[in-house]
Simulated assay, not measured.
Amino acid sequence: MASDDAPKSASRDGDAPIARAVTINRPRAELYAYWRDFAKLATFMENVERIEVIDEKRSHWVVKAPAGSTVEWDAIVTEDDPGALIAWVSGDGADVPNSGRVEFRDAGQRGTVVTATIDYDPPAGIVGKVIAKLFQREPAIQARRDLRRFKQLMETGEIATGARNRREHEERDA
């Protein structure tokens, strides 16, 4: 599978963490710096409504969930190795308890391999996972899509969308 398809790099068995990776043709330090500015993450993370940076270690996330609802949590940075790694855990009272890490590794002349690993506890357990998948809001699906959008943004300065094509189809079918 091509690297821009954000291949699965770890299996999802039960409650095992989800890991996705993509190779981006940009320097590691540049990609890390963009990601570390948490307020910018909403520019490519499709379901993130907003991220409010509280301080260097904490941020408040508001994310779209199935059926038009939102979920919120405070994320706390637990490890920060400039240019290489950012790890976090959600604070007490999170709607969706989660933790994870984003790693940046040199890929020679191809750029940087960015790997996002996410572990989460969805509301309503397995039922919540099934509903989230039906609405395409499940983190395994979103991680792949978000990494692909991050790659597009970092390599081209924009994110390709099908918005015009959808609108044209809707107008033609009306």
Rank of each mutant, 00 (worst) to 15 (best):
A2D: 13
S9V: 14
S11F: 06
S11R: 13
S11E: 14
R12N: 07
D15T: 09
I18D: 02
R20A: 00
R20I: 01
R20F: 00
I24Q: 04
A29M: 04
E30K: 06
E30T: 14
L31T: 09
L31D: 02
W35V: 15
W35Q: 03
R36T: 09
D37K: 15
A39Q: 08
T43N: 14
E49D: 15
E56T: 13
W61D: 09
G68P: 04
S69I: 08
T70S: 10
D81Y: 04
L85R: 13
W88G: 05
G91S: 09
A94K: 09
V96K: 12
R101I: 07
E103I: 01
D106T: 15
G111D: 11
T115M: 10
I118Y: 13
I118F: 15
P122M: 03
P122V: 00
G125S: 15
V130H: 02
E138N: 11
A140V: 08
I141S: 10
Q142M: 14
R144H: 01
R145C: 04
L147T: 01
R149C: 08
F150D: 01
F150H: 03
M154A: 15
E155N: 05
T156S: 13
I159Q: 01
A160Q: 11
T161E: 11
T161N: 03
A163R: 09
A163N: 06
N165T: 14
R166D: 05
